[in-house]
Design a protein around this nucleic acid. Structure first.
Length: 268
DNA sequence: TCTGACCTGCGA
DNA sequence: TCGCAGGTCAGA
């Protein structure tokens, strides 16, 4: 599910609603989402710890508490919510954090592709690529990364070891905006198109954050509302519809086992 | 570099 | 009943 804009939306809402508060109680189900710790140990470790900081790297959602750094990856269907009454799948709620102000924060993951980690040191994400909304993500570095890869550009964008945070929806949208075929080799993209793509990535992600993410199916904000960016998608899931730029019919193909949508005329 | 596996729910 | 879905990883 969630790509960078959805995770950023969740980060901002957890920050505004829960940052600075003490966690009084943690409850967990024995789901397979816990990676480097058991559910019971996770709950014990975070009980009576203050949630000091919330941030994001790529699609990873990070917390800092006293002594610990819980890290969450939302997989395809993970969401945080503050009101379980709004849950469509209450039996898939795997974590509950009870805070000192009486409010609760819940983690729900229907498909259980999400991951929960607990670290004692701040995670450095040195095996993951550059976050495209960070200052580190420069045109120069993007050019360098592209030159290293013989993959098609769609697979390159979705490979978190190069750029961290872009998934299927935003890879499709950024390539459309930049006018680049998803099958174009990453290391064969010219200077002008590279710059266009660089700007397109930042634009589609930033605009999606402004609209609280894209709700295609399961994603909801912490408040339980849908995102708004699905109303502004140009090609994702638009196969058979006409290109908003040239009127050509949008096509769907499969690249690396993932549905890929593009305009055969605008994207070359 | 590509495919299948991990999961569950939904719509055709 | 089958195919597909905002992701990632191991193994061929």
């Amino acid at each position: 599910m969630p790509e960078l804009p959805e995770v950023e939306t969740i980060v901002r809402q957890i920050r505004s609603g829960f940052e600075g508060l003490r966690i009084l109680q943690v409850e967990a189900t024995p789901a397979r989402i816990f990676q480097n710790i058991s559910p019971a140990e996770f709950c014990d470790a975070l009980r009576n710890k203050r949630l000091q900081q919330v941030w994001r790297y790529g699609k990873f959602l990070c917390w800092k508490t006293e002594n610990f750094f819980p890290v969450f990856h939302l997989g395809m269907s993970g969401i945080f919510m503050n009101n379980p009454a709004l849950s469509l799948y209450p039996r898939h709620i795997h974590l509950r954090f009870a805070f000192e102000n009486g409010k609760n924060l819940y983690f729900q993951d229907v498909r259980k592709f999400g991951k929960v980690f607990l670290y004692t040191d701040k995670p450095d994400f040195n095996r993951i690529g550059i976050d495209p909304l960070s200052e580190e993500f420069t045109l120069l570095k993007f050019r360098k990364l592209l030159s290293l890869s013989n993959k098609n550009i769609k697979s390159f964008l979705m490979d978190q070891h190069f750029v961290a945070g872009v998934g299927n929806i935003y890879a499709n949208e950024a390539l459309f905006l930049a006018g680049i075929s998803p099958l174009h080799k990453a290391n064969k993209i010219g200077r002008q198109k590279t710059e266009k793509l660089f700007r397109a990535i930042k634009k589609v992600l930033s605009e999606a954050i402004d609209r609280f993410g894209t709700t295609y199916s399961a994603y909801r904000t912490v408040e339980g509302t849908t995102g708004g960016n699905q109303n502004f998608l140009q090609v994702y899931q638009k196969n058979g519809e006409v290109c908003p730029v040239c009127g050509t019919v949008i096509r769907k193909t499969i690249i690396n086992s993932r549905s890929t949508f593009y305009c055969p005329k605008c994207q070359r």
